[in-house]
């Protein structure tokens, strides 16, 4: 599937969902009650039109491109795994950030990322860099700049 088709389809879906949501927005208590709704509704509808436009031009061109398989596919798979793991670590990080405090959670998070992309073999560097980073950021922000980190 060509990238334009995906974009077109995605734009249509977003357009529809957003427009529907827009009509459920609360009404304004003073002035025109619909005033908070016009702009979002217009955005959603234009988005839908753009998506449809893109889809139609692509379909007119015909979907003939079916290339790039195999090698790139495997590479893609690895990228997607890495991204998924990073996002997962990020979510865990967000969850523990205020519970464990900045230094511990950041060291854990960075450590995890380092092991993910720098490999297990270089574990000394991984641990040292994560510790030094969290420690120094905490010191600079918390102590020198007075920005309080948990």
């Amino acid at each position: 599937m060509s990238s334009n088709l995906i974009v077109g389809a995605a734009a249509c879906i977003i357009g529809v969902i957003y427009t529907v949501q827009a009509f459920y927005l609360p009404k304004a208590p003073i002035g025109d009650p619909l005033s908070p709704i016009y702009f979002p509704a217009a955005l959603g509808i234009i988005m839908l039109i753009c998506g449809l436009g893109l889809l139609l031009t692509e379909i007119k061109k015909g979907v003939y491109r079916n290339k790039e398989k195999g090698k790139t596919h495997r590479k893609n798979k690895k990228t997607i795994t890495l991204i998924t793991l990073t996002v997962a670590f990020g979510l865990i990080y967000a969850f523990i950030f205020e519970r464990f405090g900045f230094v511990i959670s950041t060291t854990l998070f960075l450590g995890a990322i380092f092991f993910l992309i720098n490999g297990k073999r270089k574990w000394t560097i991984n641990i040292i860099v994560s510790l030094v980073f969290s420690g120094s950021i905490w010191y600079v922000f918390g102590k020198l700049l007075g920005i309080s980190l948990p």
Partner: peptide, 22 residues
């Protein structure tokens, strides 16, 4: 499309003119 997405992001929050959350 990119611009519309950005505008959609900007509609999140309290609407200044009416005070309603969106």
């Amino acid at each position: 499309i990119s611009m519309l997405l950005g505008l959609m992001i900007s509609t999140v929050g309290i609407d200044l003119q009416s005070g309603v959350p969106r």
